[in-house]
């Protein structure tokens, strides 16, 4: 795909991957490392600012009877608090701020990505992988700190016949090590696939209209599909944030309460 084809956008020639391109806004270089402020950085900041606006400024009134925005902030709090309590128990209270930040950051990144011409930070594998890897390393370190070498018993399910032991332990170790990959790829792939699909069908709409004549009527079909798919994508945006947060809770529970 040439750069000119990306930019031209003539009918079906639209590059559905163009929306994922990172471009520098402010060039920053620290000790030879590229730390430029890009459109990805911009939308991370917008997501964080929106979360702060919701949880700090909407709560500014601290009203006894909450208004609309304060209710949303309190509901988010209760939602994540219940998630942590149900999946990790009282021992998870210390990690509640992290889970909350994680859930809100992923949710807002996904949701803001639904705005046309915006950038979806969670559609980049490096971002989701960094989050997942941080969780994986932190949970593993926590597990060994809490339980020492005993944490390795996580790989040995109880009541297992000795014959199956080598096989199952290998499977358990592989499944444990693939946690950061599955966690990050799930989110990244969902976001990328959804946005690409929307772009492809948007390309169809423009292509049909561009073709003129009887084809203009046909443009209604991909447009109707896009409308329905946008609804589904909003659901997926929420669901993936929820899945990301709840899996983190489950991993954390494994580390805190060895079975």
């Amino acid at each position: 795909m040439s750069a000119s084809a990306d930019q031209e956008g003539g009918g079906l020639g639209i590059d559905p991957m163009h929306q994922f391109e990172v471009h520098t806004i402010i060039d920053i270089n620290i000790a030879g490392i590229n730390a430029s402020f890009t459109n990805a950085s911009l939308w991370m900041v917008i997501a964080a600012a929106s979360i702060v606006a919701l949880t700090v400024f909407a709560m500014g009134g601290r009203a006894m009877v909450p208004g609309r925005w304060q209710s949303v902030a309190e509901m988010s709090y209760e939602f994540v608090a219940n998630m942590v309590r149900d999946n990790v128990g009282t021992a998870g209270q210390a990690y509640f701020p992290f889970i909350f930040t994680l859930f809100m950051f992923v949710l807002f990144s996904n949701m803001l990505g639904m705005i046309p011409y915006s950038f979806t930070t969670t559609s980049h594998i490096i971002v989701t992988f960094a989050l997942a890897m941080f969780i994986f390393v932190a949970v593993t370190v926590l597990g060994f700190v809490k339980h020492g070498a005993h944490y390795l018993s996580l790989f040995v399910p109880k009541g297992l016949p000795a014959v199956l032991l080598p096989l199952i332990v290998v499977i358990e170790v592989i499944s444990y090590l693939s946690r950061p990959i599955s966690l990050s790829v799930r989110l990244f792939a969902n976001m990328m696939a959804g946005h690409t699909m929307l772009k492809v069908f948007a390309g169809f709409v423009i292509g049909f209209i561009g073709a003129g004549g009887a084809y203009i009527g046909l443009a209604a079909l991909p447009l109707a599909f896009m409308v329905a798919f946008t609804g589904l994508e909003i659901l997926v945006a929420f669901l993936q944030a929820y899945v990301f947060a709840i899996l983190t809770c489950i991993y954390l529970n494994d580390a805190l309460h060895l079975h």
Partner: peptide, 13 residues
């Protein structure tokens, strides 16, 4: 793009 994304993710998060 990995370095700037990681740096800004760490910072913002």
């Amino acid at each position: 793009t990995f370095a700037p994304q990681l740096i800004w993710l760490t910072l913002v998060f």
